[in-house]
């Protein structure tokens, strides 16, 4: 079976700076893959390329949605890529702060609706029924993520950990087959991180969503990842299972510097 995500030889230049250098990343159905590396290694840039925020200088990103043909998504607009089944979160929380929790999730559902602008304005019966379905679906997602008590709260009033979870709920509302999480545990306390750990495993198990995550919390990365890619200065320097990566001298060097020769 083809990999659900296959990024081949992706390079992203900003002027003279090569942020991502010839990266090959693939993810198989049902995998949890981590992308780690020191700050400024190009991990988030790589996410931006995959999700259509940037168009790669060279290289190709192909996806194979379950039950569909392999297709290239290079250069598509972000909203088209979301429609095709990729969703992401950000390392700095980017919720729609002045909308309610439910509305944030509903926004994510909308790309799965069929009614157009005319329907939204004139509100025919079909649109209304669809809209009711969206509310029900969104509520169900919030329940799964454990946010149902906050439904009508404004997103900005949520505690930090709940905001992080809401970002994941909103991403899940778009019905992705691949979820990209950019530092989901950033700023969380150990207890919250453990909950997140369980939640990610649950999402994979019950929703059949594969996951690519950027993370600095090594205990989280080592405990849930099937495979790990390590990036440094835009270059992938290692790939493998957690225990292989942990023992890899190139990785140790990238994290701890040249002089580490103990």
């Amino acid at each position: 079976m083809a990999a659900i995500l296959d990024a081949s030889q992706v390079t992203m230049d900003f002027g003279g700076l090569r942020a991502v250098n010839n990266a090959d990343v693939h993810i198989d159905q049902g995998e949890i893959v981590a992308l780690i590396g020191p700050n400024g290694a190009g991990k988030t840039t790589f996410f931006n390329v995959i999700t259509g925020v940037y168009k790669p200088t060279t290289g190709d990103v192909r996806i194979t949605a379950p039950g569909k043909e392999t297709e290239s998504i290079t250069g598509l607009k972000p909203n088209k890529i979301t429609e095709k089944g990729l969703a992401r979160t950000f390392q700095n929380i980017r919720l729609f702060q002045n909308m309610t929790v439910l509305e944030n999730v509903m926004i994510g559902r909308h790309c799965r609706m069929k009614a157009g602008i005319a329907g939204a304005v004139f509100r025919d019966r079909k649109t209304r029924e669809e809209e009711e379905q969206v509310v029900a679906d969104s509520y169900a997602i919030l329940k799964k993520i454990g946010l149902e008590t906050f439904v009508n709260e404004l997103a900005k009033n949520l505690p930090y950990g709940a905001q992080r979870r809401l970002e994941i709920a909103r991403a899940m509302a778009t019905e992705p087959f691949l979820l990209l999480l950019d530092e989901p545990a950033a700023g969380m306390n150990p207890h919250e991180t453990r909950e997140l750990d369980e939640m990610i495993l649950k999402i994979r198990a019950t929703e059949k969503i594969s996951i690519l995550l950027i993370e600095h919390d090594m205990s989280l990365v080592m405990s849930i990842s099937d495979r790990i890619y390590v990036m440094d200065y835009g270059l992938l320097i290692a790939e493998g299972q957690p225990k292989e990566v942990r023992a890899n001298p190139a990785v140790i060097k990238a994290y701890l510097g040249e002089e580490f020769n103990a």
Partner: peptide
């Protein structure tokens, strides 16, 4: 729905695009 999309776009245009 279009109203929500408008509010979302005005708060964070890039994020709005990323949720479709």
């Amino acid at each position: 729905r279009i109203g929500k999309a408008m509010r979302a776009t005005s708060q964070d245009r890039q994020m709005a695009q990323l949720v479709g």
